[in-house]
Design a protein around this nucleic acid. Structure first.
Length: 503
RNA sequence: GACCGCUUAGCUCAGCCGGUAGAGCAACUGACUUUUAAUCAGUAGGUCGAGGGUUCGAAUCCCUCAGCGGUCACCA
């Protein structure tokens, strides 16, 4: 009957050879034979990985009476449907459809089957003489009819654009994509557990912020209609986290969230990205160095079973304590220039120019030091390293350094030449903070789109009294790139930002 | 944003000095109750990213546009 339906369907024209037409015809034939291509009922008693584990010692050619049901996607069909490779979320298992084990009706249903369909299959466990663990199928059902073809079963999907645009196909075809994204989940869970176990409290701060604050960055701007006001998508959570410390919500608050910066993309930049940020009472940047390195090292150990692993041919060792170097010393070491020996921007400019570092006009001393650091040092910091004591000019939220009033108690952690963390002893003097904001406002008015804005309510919160505290931020995406051996941030974001195609 | 590169069948890829489109997988028909990238025989499938130009003739050369990738700039 089903075959008649199929014949009728194509009797009017030439044989259907288009893959999509063929699948649609099979779906129709199914319906005509009284089946639904998307039934409600299904059974599944076992995951493939559990069966592979349970029966790993089952000898070749052994039949059992053990009855199981599996379910998943058909990835390959061999020998007229006698051998079906089924893939569930855990693993693959072969389904053996032998005519001696199946009824006529069941065998006929094989005609409706395509690669890509979701099926369940019930039967007994055996290991074939060739060594493949299989379910000797008694009954199977198509649970979801697939009506678009899958990529080449051997080569998978290699077109990088299509892998990102159609991640669902990428995940079906490419085990590595799946592994990387699952690893990301594992990393996030570990970090949350680590922080929660240490007594930190996870909070959520607004994504829609009336004032851009907490970081120097170009924001996305959106509009709320009924409030008739523009909002900035969060570039940082910091100022809100510290408000919570003013309120005494907890000793240590943190957020793992999505941040938005309207800047260029690259293998390590996506317009929306994930950071962990936290603020801890009565901690300073020294404590933050311990927190960052212990947390990251524990994550590395959790994932790789060791503090050391190879990334793109380089061994990275996260064993604590990490190397520390002040920014001034780091610049001195790699360029021979001592920027503490010059006071004015003009002299700093001349010093940087003497080594051929390209600078924008109008930069202040701190910006020049940072530029020299970024251009000459950063890429060389392969092993995890804390670069400490950032210039005051580029650190408006960091408390002034106790030994040098041109510097602050701030550090950033680098690995593989990338910044992965940023932390400091937080400013809690409202007047000092106000002055720092106003310097940012001046820079903003001079055309620096990334300079920060005055957040008057935040100053108000500081006047109520912010206890001494340390703040930290950790770039989750970069950590994931490193831990998954990925080439690009897009590989560890399920749906990376792409320009829509207009065709 | 700038420069360089890529774009050919549903997927993976060939296609030389410009001469009119090829293979494997997937699909279809058939053979084999055998396999594991199953095999064998056959069939069908393409506005060569889009638009324009040069030419007797363009997938191929030139221009514009689009998407993606890489590098740089900005940044985490």
């Amino acid at each position: 009957m089903a075959q008649e339906a199929q014949k009728n369907n194509k009797s009017s024209a030439a044989p259907i050879t288009d893959p999509i037409e063929s699948k649609l015809a099979k779906r129709k034939a199914m319906i005509d034979a009284g089946f639904t291509p998307y039934p409600h009922a299904y059974h599944r008693t076992h995951m493939a990985v559990d069966l592979q584990e349970t029966y790993k010692d089952l000898a070749e050619g052994t039949e059992t009476e053990d009855r199981v049901s599996v379910a998943g996607r058909v990835m390959a069909v061999r020998n007229n449907g006698m051998f079906i490779d089924l893939m569930d979320t855990s693993a693959r298992i072969q389904v053996f459809c032998h005519k001696d084990s199946m009824s006529e009706d069941q065998l006929k249903k094989l005609d409706f089957l395509d690669i890509g369909d979701i099926i369940d299959a019930s039967g007994t466990i055996r290991r074939t003489p060739r060594g493949e663990l299989s379910v000797r199928c008694v009954e199977f059902n198509i649970l979801t009819k697939s009506t678009l073809p899958l990529p080449d079963k051997y080569h998978g999907l290699t077109d990088i654009e299509q892998r990102y645009r159609q991640r669902y196909i990428d995940l079906i075809m490419n085990e590595d994509s799946k592994k990387a994204l699952l690893m990301r989940s594992k990393i996030l869970m570990f970090l949350r557990n680590y922080l929660n176990d240490s007594g930190a409290v996870e909070v959520e701060t607004p994504v829609l912020q009336p004032i851009m604050g907490g970081a120097s960055a170009k924001p996305f701007i959106t509009h709320h209609n009924s409030l008739d006001h523009d909002f900035y998508l969060k570039v940082a959570a910091e100022l809100y986290l510290k408000r919570l410390l003013v309120g005494g919500l907890a000793e240590h608050v943190y957020e793992i969230g999505r941040y938005f910066r309207n800047e260029g993309t690259s293998p390590k930049h996506n317009p929306e990205f994930t950071m962990a940020e936290g603020n801890k009472l009565y901690a300073n940047y020294e404590d933050m160095m311990h927190l960052i390195e212990n947390m990251v090292a524990a994550t590395v150990k959790h994932v790789h079973g060791s503090y050391e692993f190879e990334f793109k041919g380089k061994m990275l060792n996260f064993q604590t304590p990490w190397k520390r170097m002040s920014m001034i010393d780091a610049v001195k070491e790699y360029t021979g220039l001592d920027f503490l020996s010059v006071e004015t921007p003009e002299d700093a400019y001349k010093m940087a120019a003497s080594k051929g570092v390209k600078l924008e006009p109008g930069m202040n001393w701190g910006q020049i030091v940072e530029e020299v650091f970024a251009e000459r040092v950063e890429a060389k910091l392969i092993q995890p390293t804390h670069i400490t004591d950032y210039p005051i000019d580029i650190s408006p939220l960091s408390k002034i350094h106790q030994e040098n009033n041109r510097l602050t108690e701030r550090f950033e952690s680098f690995c593989n030449g990338w910044e992965i963390a940023n932390a400091f002893t937080e400013v809690n003097d409202p007047d000092y903070q106000y002055d720092q904001f106003m310097k940012q406002v001046d820079q903003r008015e001079a055309g620096d789109e990334e300079a920060q804005m005055l957040d008057a309510d935040y100053i108000n919160a500081l006047r109520i009294g912010l206890p001494p505290n340390g703040g930290w931020g950790l770039g989750i995406d970069r950590l994931c790139i490193l831990l998954t051996q990925s080439d690009s941030i897009k590989d560890i974001i399920c749906f990376p930002t792409l320009k829509p195609k207009n065709d």
